[in-house]
Amino acid sequence: MAQASAVEHHPTSTGTDNRKLLWWIFLGSECLFFGSLLATYLIFKGSLAIPPFPTDRIVDAAALVGVSDAAREACHSIGNNLFECEGILDVPVTSQSTFVLLMSSVTMVLAVYGAQNNRLKMMKLWLLATMLLGLAFLGYQVFEFTTFGNEGLNLSSNQFGASFFMLTGFHGTHVAVGVLYLGSLLFASFRRSGLGPEAGFHIESAGLYWHFVDVVWIVLFTVLYLIPA
């Protein structure tokens, strides 16, 4: 009796799983998405004229015309019609959130290990840890955005605000989607059938996405926070 198998379970031409191939191609596409957002940020960074600035800068009085009070407070007169404006980025605080996201990658890979080796308790534990770390990162981001807002930076304050919030906001959206993704997997793993015979694959897929979001942050943290003006 010949028994042809269902479409998704054929042996494939390259020997790779279709779904994993899809993930990698999709992540390749995401490179262009974040590349374009980052390009926008860097293009405008070169021509910032009015505060708030990402890092400390000296400007003349003309730059402060029409600037919000909150942004003006960060600029102190140093005489000669010049003002020194404090940069808005708080590298130590964001380093903490960077560390949190980095650790979430470690917990994620441990969850993948647990799923692939049929150690389901380990998988659930580390999935939960990854979710919590992801939520912590989002908490840091909410704190950062709120602080910046109070210091006069918003979508309409200047090009730095617009491109910074767009770039980090879309990264944060990716993290949030990742938390939901992991959460739904964790929820599903408590069903009687668990995640089924392909648990290792499902968690690995989620891991690919999660690690990619982490990798994007590695680039963003370096380019946005560590490299000075």
């Binding site: 390749g28 596409s29 262009l32 998405f33 590349g35 374009s36 957002l37 926008t40 617009a162 767009m166």
Partner: peptide, 17 residues
């Protein structure tokens, strides 16, 4: 398509914003 749509998406999002 996979590689060229993201820049368009970013441009459209900028216009939307």
């Amino acid at each position: 398509l996979i590689l060229a749509l993201p820049p368009l998406t970013v441009a459209l999002l900028q216009l939307l914003f």
